[in-house]
Amino acid sequence: MSRALGRAGLLLGLPVILLVTWWFASAGSKSFYQPPLETIIKVFPATWTAARFRSDVLPSLGRLFLGYGLAVLLGIVLGVLIGAHRRLRALVEPLLEFLRAIPPPVLVPILILVAGLGDPTKVLVIVSGGIWPVLLNTVEGVRGVDQVLADTCRTYRICGWLRMRTFILRAASPQIVVGARQALSISIIMMVIGELLGATNGLGYTVVQFQRGFEIPEMWSGVFVLGLLGVLLSLAFTLVERRVLSWYHGVRAAERSGR
């Protein structure tokens, strides 16, 4: 019981300290763009009403989940292919690096032509940003599989899907999971970027609209919502990760307790 309390204290300690510090540091702030935390909290309930959640947050979440899911799926599939085939990797790596370094905002006209102004474009923007950490980590994870295990697999003539599932994906999964975690927050950012284009609703659209309308406390309250979304999704992610990587955490935990 006391352990759980200690854990909760550790989890909540820093955010509480930061918020309190922010509260006092910003109290009475006259700077237009750095309003007191008190003001931000005051506008929060009136800004993020149930109606707004339905009209702006929910559509954003739908696009986010779809885009993120596609990014992870594509990232793993392409990553395994590229990671496992040396020549394919040599062939596409410079090209991928080239594409990775292109700022998404400048691709807007092409996206309009190819995918229009609706949800497909916004999902595409999320995929275009979220795929890279998954892809890169998967490639590196697959490249870095243990040689001894690879040889063992060959000796036992384990190949095909069985080899992929029991060896390659499993060996690469710790790194794939890092990539998927990275992609989560990047997807939220890309969700906001995507809503700058041809959008009429959405969480990111709302935040930017507040900024343009000089409603700075409301804008900061929107930043809060984005941050909270990040925390919630990361909690959900941790739960999924514990299931998917239970064997891995098991190994590492056994090692820790055995110390």
């Binding site: 807007v108 006209p109 309009i112 102004l117 700058l196 284009l197 041809g198 959008a199 009429t200």
Partner: peptide, 8 residues
Amino acid sequence: FVEIAFPD
């Protein structure tokens, strides 16, 4: 109305 920059 939808938001699109002048150049696009």
